[in-house]
């Protein structure tokens, strides 16, 4: 039955995404399904049944006038209107190199954030000989050089894919299906990674403040600062990596115009996404409420040094709600 469904999908993939076309696809699919199940019921093998159903399907030419798609069928024949066709291998290789390059970009940023680490440590530990200073500066410049090198290399590697953004391209039905699968598979992982990154951002100052509160030595304080840098850098790295695959998929799926049946993936069809009413109600008032609480508490108690913590907490709550209830972000899916 899957073979039949795929056959039908690929026949309809390039047609305009109108109610008539969708209805025709659905009705034809039901007729084929009925025929298939009866053939199987009468003792035909799967292969025989599929072959017979497909050979008796007819051709779309006959539907052209009924559905008002004569132009689309003729366009589909020449393939000119679709622009450059991106093949399955190309799509796969694009997604891989995009993931790879975003890892390089992330590492570059990580190095940049970490670059002053040595100098801070030597200041904290009181290493002030000329040699120590040189070592610190050397570390700083090496890290920055590594960062620039990684960014440049990654950008150069992505240059060969620039045509995806500058030329008119399209992907065929099978490729769109594959990309959509990748997207769905990477979605949860990406959400998890983003949550981890946000948690890292929110907690990066904790060791330093604990050391400060406990009245630790300057060496420990320096260590706390380096830890802060490390966590921020790691958070940024995870954040950059997390979005790469999904953004790549979104770009590929966005190549097809939503006016065509195979472009309708872009709106996130069949993703089992739902909007929880309570969650979206909470989300809509989350940030204003946080700001109100912040202002009221701060003005009443004058504890500005502590009260700002509500913002990182709100970020975490916001992320968690969005991840758990999959509330669609309007802007993201435009």
């Amino acid at each position: 039955m899957n073979t039949i469904r795929n056959y039908l999908e690929s026949m309809f993939a390039k047609l305009p995404n109108t109610p008539e076309v969708i209805k025709a696809k659905c009705e034809l699919g039901q007729m084929m399904e009925d025929k298939y199940s009866e053939l199987i019921h009468n003792g035909k093998s799967e292969n025989e049944a599929v072959a017979q159903v497909i050979s008796e399907f007819g051709n779309l030419e006959e539907l052209a006038d009924a559905l008002g798609i004569r132009e689309a069928i003729q366009d589909g024949g020449t393939g000119n209107s679709a622009g450059r066709e991106v093949s399955l291998e190309e799509a796969r290789s694009y997604l891989d190199s995009r993931a790879h390059c975003s890892l390089l970009h992330g590492l570059g940023t990580f190095f940049a954030v970490l670059s002053p680490g040595w100098i801070i440590l030597s200041a904290a530990f009181g290493w002030s000989t000329r040699l120590d200073l040189t070592a610190g500066l050397l570390f700083l410049f090496t890290m920055i050089a590594a960062c620039v090198g990684l960014h440049v290399y990654a950008s150069l590697r992505m240059r060969k894919w620039a045509f995806l953004k500058t030329e008119t391209c399209s992907i065929d039905y099978g490729t769109a299906g594959m990309v959509n699968d990748v997207r769905r598979a990477s979605r949860d992982m990406a959400a998890l990674q983003r949550t981890v990154a946000v948690l890292l951002f929110c907690t990066c100052y904790v060791p330093l403040s604990l050391f400060a509160v406990a009245g630790a030595s300057s060496a420990l304080l320096g260590f706390g600062v380096v830890l802060l840098l490390f966590m921020t850098g790691l958070g940024t790295l995870i954040l950059i990596v997390s979005s790469s695959r999904e953004n790549g998929c979104r770009l590929l799926l966005g190549l097809n115009s939503p006016q065509r049946v195979d472009g309708s993936y872009y709106k996130g069809q069949g993703e089992g996404k739902y909007t929880n009413k309570a969650a979206s109600a909470i989300l809509s008032v989350l940030w204003p409420t946080a700001v109100c609480i912040y202002l009221i508490v701060s003005f009443l108690t004058f504890s500005w040094a502590v009260s700002w913590i509500i913002f990182p907490i709100t970020v975490v709550v916001d992320r968690l709600l969005k991840t758990v209830f999959r509330v669609k972000e309007g802007k993201e899916n435009e």
Binding site: M31, K35, E56, F57, N59, E62, L63, D65, A66, L67
Partner: peptide
């Protein structure tokens, strides 16, 4: 006579 699915459906819509 085995009628094709597309023939049948286009006759219906017409």
């Amino acid at each position: 006579y085995i009628i094709k699915e597309t023939t049948l459906y286009s006759a219906f819509t017409r």
